[in-house]
């Protein structure tokens, strides 16, 4: 009899066991929450969507701000990105954002 070299075979018993564990885990979390009836009572409400999740800002395209001819030549790319990136510190160095370079 030859020994079959299988990759990572998962038997029916293991699958059933995993499912049983999973169901136990889920029911434990569900009963820990307060009945969970809250979410089911919600409904979709149109016209109140959050910024960034709505169908574009109605006002944005209608702005006349800075209506002069915009002429961005290469000089704009002298900007260094600035914002919060330097506030996030990585183990590779404080304030530096060139991570995962071992």
């Amino acid at each position: 009899m030859t020994t079959k070299i299988t990759k990572t075979e998962i038997g029916a018993a293991a699958l059933a066991g995993a499912l049983a564990t999973a169901l136990t885990l889920v029911s434990a979390t569900a009963s820990a929450q307060t009945m969970g009836g809250d979410k089911a009572g919600k409904e979709k409400c149109y016209g109140v969507s959050l910024k960034g999740e709505n169908d574009c800002a109605a006002g944005a395209g209608t702005s006349c701000a800075g209506s002069s001819k915009v002429d961005y030549d290469g000089s704009i790319w002298k900007y260094v990105p600035k914002g919060t990136c330097e506030t996030i510190k990585t183990p590779q160095g404080t304030g530096s954002l060139k991570p995962v370079k071992s």
Binding site: K51, G52, N54, C56, A57, A60, G61, T62, S63, C64, A65, G66, S67, S68, K69, V70
Partner: peptide, 15 residues
């Protein structure tokens, strides 16, 4: 032209 560009930039900003 500027309004079109401002609108598109605004769409990206909100997304």
């Amino acid at each position: 032209r500027n309004n079109v560009m401002v609108g598109l930039i605004g769409a990206l900003e909100s997304r």
